[in-house]
Design a protein around this nucleic acid. Structure first.
Length: 890
RNA sequence: GGGCCUGUAGCUCAGCUGGUCAGAGCGCCACGCUUACACCGUGGAUGUCGGGGGUUCGAGUCCCUCCGGGCCCA
């Protein structure tokens, strides 16, 4: 059974060697003949390939991999795919620069298009020099570029040892994903869950696209409070404070809190705006903050989300001036034309950015005497698109929405249903559920999915044009599911000809794409073969596990629950495992902008995959972890220890002549109490580790296993060393020797399997010395055989014997002599509870402690010894022999 | 302003439902080249468990409050 134990062991090169072997042997290949009960399926987060992987990825993906490996060994057929998120802005920008192109959806597709550049050495191509291409061409270029990124990502994951089945690969932009995304949307549409609306929404003026609530980020933004006078009918001033005076032309009401005594007599009256003389009502609404500024606010269409709320709830007029490009409308609005502010608007404001319009308005206010005092500097929270750097504006536009419980719906109470789903889902750790609930409860609108971008999944619709060439949005032309995926900007709908595009009586395609989350929210459906491979679908869906970061609970986790709930009326997975952040040593979140990011590949090359995995696995789910190289070094040490201890334990079974031998893993051969005590302790470890993994507490599983493994190395191995060595080559072995050797092998066999999820490379290396197949397909150990082998042995005996050995070591350490120094005789005081155990293992203790003469055991008296040290065992008298002669230096 | 998490040895962290829980590893100090391992081994020192109240026979462990960190939502 022992085939080959190398003379010199090493962790070097294991990653490449076993990655190859695992691929060749299909170790992690999903066997799709398994039934749903036999499968453990994982909805792996698809990393954004245009970004770069960082240690945070390594961290959280390792967590998932330990779980995957556990369940695989547990006998589950693990469905563990990997996806790539290619969608979205980062890829678009890279493609523009790399190939020197820009997307123009109005252009026709060009077959065999070749871009002007192939990489521009990091230099950006000026927008004016970029060659415009159709969306289809643009997407093809995106795909070309991301293919390369994916190769690098895969190499990293393989090096880390993720037990992914690489045959189950997908991209969020591939044809399968596009079809699934469009199909899901069309079904939402058919069921009334998707709708379009002309409504005020968040808008990024830089990227010129709508933005969803989930993509918001509130940031501190500097500004000024301007105290501005409105005018009552009698001409007296009513002051408000605003940070956005340029929106005075868009004012539709002044609003104060209904309980605010200062404004009671004004409610229901009207005032006129400064400069423009527009008459607006003074109204009451509880969202007005009494203690903020003057307590009365200017409501414009639209300055912020509160304005939208007021506008909607108080049914105010719409007077928009900010356009999609972030500038004030070039035409003078009707409500200003012919008024006192017409000239100001046409000459100073039309077409200006919000920023320069503000200056102009403030100058005018100052001139008219409507500015009270000077503007006061302020910092306030302002909404930004998470990828943008200018404050979001709110503009009215026609967009598509998917219902997510954020807005009331007459058909059903979606919000309550989704909250119920949240309760149904097992969050690990459990408190992460609160984030989900907070988010769902705080939603204030449905999910806006239209994006005015290019590299994404197209909204799969066309709209007819009437005879006058006007678009009829109310009657979209819907493709059949069989046609999907489609690109409505380059394909004509059935029954039309491409020549009718944009012609009266013809059609136009919806130019928008869907939010990337609209596709990635379908990842469980996509990987499971929804409507594409019903056989696979039934075997893996709904899935078992969604691992992900805590930052995207509101986006990815929530939106996935929404889609699955709407489409399948089921939770997409049973468990959600949420990983924490990686913090740098200063307790700051690691991020690229801070320049403290370490390249994962360098880390793996330097320390070894097992070492890096150890560091990651030592952190619990949901808990932030420090980036600690020290922890990786400990992991490396553990991996090396596994190799060395295994080599040692297995060598006993190897014939020194032939270099081969046999170890029989027969528990019946373990007859010595100490050996059985060790197995008894191990049985408990197996139980604890199993329980921990089942509860998604991989850290505890590692901890109990690791601790016992070190006890095994430091104490047990030393204690049985002499006994295991005994017996001349070829001679009949004594039962005690067989017992030790068998126990060593049994323990090793179990511990390798317990450690395999954490240290897949080192454990596989050892496994290859003496077992067949992969340790990663070996059965997860169970406690029962160990227990029956242990019989009535007391696991405390190993601890007791270990403490006795340590007490002997201590006298040598204090005498500053080598551990090889013989003890001629000694008396040892042992607490009553340990006495029988130590006595039972006396020969092993004496052997390991090099006690050559009598070792007398006496029961420790009250107060003797400290149970914290050597379990209270104290050597009360001893005589040391001569230290062995130092070996001459070689 | 509301919510969640967090503050235990120099460092990174365990300590579940209150009663050997004051722990581990690293680091540190001392010693030891012992044929599994010097990428090692052995032994040792280290803390009013963030502060202050309270509940209890008894509190890192429960309650209140304050302080410090992190995140989410207004």
């Amino acid at each position: 059974m022992v085939r080959e134990v190398p003379d010199k062991v090493s962790t070097d090169g294991l990653e490449e060697r076993f990655d190859e072997r695992w691929s060749a042997e299909g170790t992690y290949a999903f066997d799709r003949s398994a039934t749903r009960e036999q499968v453990y399926s994982i909805d792996t987060p698809p990393p954004t390939v245009s970004g770069s992987l960082h240690v945070g990825h390594v961290f959280s993906y390792t967590h998932t991999d330990t779980v995957a490996r556990f369940w695989r060994m547990r006998g589950k057929e693990v469905f563990y795919p990997m996806g790539w998120d290619d969608n979205g802005l980062p890829t678009e920008r890279r493609v523009q620069n790399y190939f020197g192109v820009r997307c123009d959806p109005s252009l026709p597709y060009v077959e065999g298009f070749e871009p002007p550049h192939q990489g521009t050495d990091g230099k950006n191509v000026k927008p004016a020099d970029q060659v415009p291409v159709s969306r289809r061409n643009f997407i093809e270029l995106c795909e070309r570029l991301t293919t390369d990124d994916e190769r690098q990502f895969e190499a990293l994951w393989r090096r880390l040892g993720l037990s992914v089945d690489w045959a189950q690969n997908y991209q969020t932009i591939d044809a399968t994903s596009r079809a699934a995304s469009q199909r899901a949307f069309l079904r939402n549409l058919a069921r009334g869950e998707a709708y379009q609306a002309e409504a005020p929404g968040l808008w990024d003026v830089t990227f010129q696209t709508a933005v969803a609530q989930a993509e918001l980020e509130a940031r501190e933004y500097p500004g000024f409070y301007h105290r501005v006078a409105f005018h009552r009918p009698d001409g007296s001033p009513l002051h408000i404070e605003t940070t956005r005076p340029e929106l005075i032309p868009a004012v539709v009401a002044l609003i104060a809190h209904p309980d605010d005594e200062r404004y009671q007599d004004l409610f229901g009256t009207t005032v006129t705006s400064p400069l423009f003389g527009v008459e607006v009502p003074v109204l009451a609404h509880p969202a007005a903050a009494m203690d903020k500024g003057a307590g009365i606010a200017m409501c414009c269409t639209f300055g912020d989300l509160t304005d939208v709320q007021w506008w909607r709830e108080l049914q105010l007029a719409t007077r928009s001036v900010i356009q999609r490009d972030g500038r004030l409308s070039r035409e003078t609005p009707a409500w200003i034309a012919d008024g006192p502010g017409e000239d100001l608007y046409t000459q100073e404001l039309a077409g200006k950015t919000a920023f320069s319009a503000r200056t102009a308005v403030v100058d005018a206010l100052r001139a008219s005497g409507d500015l009270d005092g000077e503007p006061v500097k302020t910092q306030r929270m302002t909404n930004f698109y998470e990828k943008g750097d200018k404050p979001l504006e709110i503009v009215t536009s026609r967009q598509w929405y998917i219902r997510n419980g954020g807005r009331d719906w007459s058909e059903r109470n979606l919000k309550a249903e989704l909250l119920a789903r949240g309760k149904e889902l097992d969050f690990h750790p459990d408190f992460m559920r609160v984030r989900y609930e907070n988010w769902v409860n705080g939603l204030n609108g449905d999910w806006l999915i239209s994006r005015q971008r290019f590299f994404g999944v197209a909204v799969p619709l066309w709209y007819p044009l009437d005879d006058a060439g006007e678009v009829d949005h109310d009657h979209p032309i819907v493709p059949s599911e069989a046609e999907l995926p489609i690109d409505p900007t380059s394909q004509a709908p059935a029954g039309y000809d491409e020549a009718q595009r944009g012609q009266p009586g013809g059609f136009v395609g919806d130019a928008d794409v869907m939010d990337t989350w609209a596709t990635s929210s379908l990842s469980p459906l996509i990987v499971s073969g929804w409507e594409r491979d019903p056989d696979l679908f039934d075997r893996v869906y709904p899935m078992d596990l969604r691992p992900q970061g805590q930052d995207i609970i509101r986006t990815w986790l929530f939106s996935t629950v929404v889609r699955s709930h709407l489409e399948k009326d089921v939770l997409p997975w049973k468990h959600a495992a949420i990983s924490g952040w990686i913090l740098d040593p200063d307790r700051k979140k690691m991020s690229k902008s801070k320049g403290n990011v370490v390249t994962p590949m360098d880390l793996l090359v330097e320390h070894g995959a097992d070492a890096v995995r150890y560091w990651a696995a030592a952190a619990r789910l949901g808990t932030d972890a420090a980036f600690e190289v020290g922890q990786m070094k400990i992991g490396r040490r553990l991996a090396i220890k596994v190799l060395n201890a295994s080599k040692f334990a297995l060598t006993f079974g190897v014939d020194p002549e032939t270099g081969t031998g046999e170890i029989v893993l027969d528990p019946a051969r373990v007859t010595v109490d100490l050996d059985r005590a060790m197995l008894a302790g191990l049985a408990t470890v197996v139980e604890q580790a199993t329980e921990a993994f089942e509860a998604y507490d991989h850290t505890r599983a590692l901890e109990v296993t690791e601790t016992y493994f070190w006890t095994f190395c430091d104490d047990y191995l030393e204690l049985v060393k002499d006994r295991a060595y005994a017996g001349a080559a070829g001679a009949e072995l004594a039962d005690e020797t067989v017992s030790a050797r068998t126990a060593l092998a049994l323990a090793l066999d179990v511990m390798l399997r317990l450690l395999a999820p954490f240290l897949p490379f080192a454990t596989e290396e050892v496994w290859s010395w003496w077992r067949t197949g992969s340790v990663h397909r070996a059965a997860w150990p169970s406690a029962e055989p160990l227990r029956s082998a242990a019989g009535d042995a007391d696991p405390a005996q190993l601890a007791g014997a270990g403490h006795a050995l340590a007490a002997l070591r201590k006298i040598k350490s204090e005498a500053k002599v080598s551990m090889r120094t013989p003890v001629l005789e000694a008396t040892m005081a042992v607490p009553a509870t340990l006495l029988a155990g130590v006595r039972g293992a006396l020969d092993d203790v004496k052997g390991a402690g090099r006690v050559t003469g009598p070792l007398e055991l006496v029961e420790a008296t009250e107060g003797q010894g400290n149970t914290d040290v050597q379990g209270g065992i104290v050597v009360t008298a001893s005589e040391l022999g001569e230290p062995p002669a130092r070996k001459p230096k070689a």
